[in-house]
Amino acid sequence: MKKILSLITVVLFSVSTFAQLVLKNDPAHSRIQFAVMHLGINDITGNFDKAALTINADEKNFANSTLAFSADVNSINTHVEARDNHLKSPDFFNAEKFPTLEFKSTSLTKNKKNYYTLKGNLTMHGVTKPVTLTLVYRGSTVNPMNKKTTYGYQVLGTLKRSDFNVGPNFPAPMINDMVRIKGDFELTAE
């Protein structure tokens, strides 16, 4: 009886192991971009150049997968050093006190082929709030450089900076409250 229980445990463990695929992003080909309207007439764009995404993918039912992504606030890059320094200051992100932006998924729902509604908790500037984003599976290919299967995912959404107390002294006519985000990630299995 003990041998049968041991065999069942091994089989169940093996099945759950094969059904789970842990994907981690390639930092050289991954970043989170943002765009916000300035003075009501022009988008200002930038990146968090250091961003990470991990997907614990359920290969049998992707909707059961979990995702987590983060960005190093000190890697903010708008291509204007003075603006980058201001965004890192207590006026906006306060990068010294809150150096990381983090998201952890709570649910994933398939909408149509390769498109999912991604819900989770975003922590930014010391504030955690539930947000709803879109996850797009962009496909997979074998990278000729390392011979690994590479998966492409994109995360899209719009956030209110006021929800996270980012830039509270800058009114919406100066810097819009709505910030569009787009994360592009290339991932490989661990």
Rank of each mutant, 00 (worst) to 15 (best):
K3I: 10
L5Q: 13
S6K: 09
I8D: 04
T9A: 15
T9R: 09
V11F: 14
L12A: 13
P27M: 10
S30A: 06
A35G: 15
M37C: 11
L39R: 08
I41G: 12
I41P: 09
D43G: 06
I44V: 15
I44D: 10
T45L: 07
G46V: 11
D49V: 06
A51P: 05
A52Y: 04
I55A: 01
E59F: 02
K60V: 10
N61F: 01
A63Q: 13
N64G: 02
S65F: 05
T66F: 04
L67C: 02
A68I: 08
S70P: 04
T78H: 04
H79C: 11
H79T: 09
V80M: 07
E81G: 01
A82C: 03
R83V: 11
D84M: 08
H86S: 07
K88Q: 07
N94H: 12
L101A: 07
E102A: 15
E102P: 05
F103Q: 05
T106H: 12
T106C: 09
T109N: 11
K113W: 00
Y115P: 00
L118I: 05
N121L: 14
L122A: 12
L122H: 06
L122T: 11
V127A: 12
T128Y: 15
L133F: 13
T150F: 11
K160R: 11
R161V: 08
S162W: 11
N165C: 08
V166R: 10
M174L: 15
I175Q: 04
I175C: 10
D177R: 12
D184Y: 00
L187Q: 02
A189V: 12
A189Y: 08
E190P: 02
